[in-house]
């Protein structure tokens, strides 16, 4: 479970540790959630986010991101997962991290993560809140 009510957008992630895929639906709030968590990442240090832009701008691979999550992280959010070439190593990294973290992934091609024993996550939002339920 992750709750953050410190900022103008309140975040409620009602999930235990594990890997969660959002439903295959557009415009549910995933990118908004990503952007808010991205901001929080800089302030609260208990979140890690990764998106395709990290590869384009910083040349940071998914491998490198997953290998360097660090200590004290509660939630990992991977946006635009479909844009990456996913390796077996990435799958193993995700499975390992899923034991101790809440991993939220925006991925439409669920077959990419078939080996990960993922859960489904639903997302709802209001003007000031974003809620994820797994």
């Amino acid at each position: 479970m992750y709750i953050n009510e410190k900022y103008s957008t309140k975040i409620y992630i009602s999930c235990g540790n594990g890997i969660y895929l959002f439903s295959n639906e557009s415009a549910t709030g995933k990118t908004r959630l990503f952007k808010v968590l991205r901001k929080i990442q800089g302030y609260d240090k208990d979140i890690k986010t990764y998106t395709y832009d990290d590869l384009l701008i910083e040349n940071k691979t998914l491998d490198a991101f997953l290998e360097n999550i660090g200590e004290g992280i509660s939630v990992i959010f991977i946006d635009r997962f479909d844009m990456h070439e996913v390796s077996q190593k990435n799958i193993e990294q995700l499975k390992r991290l899923g034991k101790d973290h809440i991993i939220l992934i925006d991925c439409k091609q669920i077959e990419l993560l078939a080996e990960c024993d993922f859960n489904d996550a639903g997302i709802t939002m209001t003007e000031q809140t974003i809620t994820v339920e797994g």
Binding site: N24, E25, S26, A27, T28, R80, D82, M83, K108
Partner: peptide, 8 residues
């Protein structure tokens, strides 16, 4: 359309 949900 790889990043599109079914509704889109």
């Amino acid at each position: 359309l790889v990043e599109c949900g079914f509704n889109a």
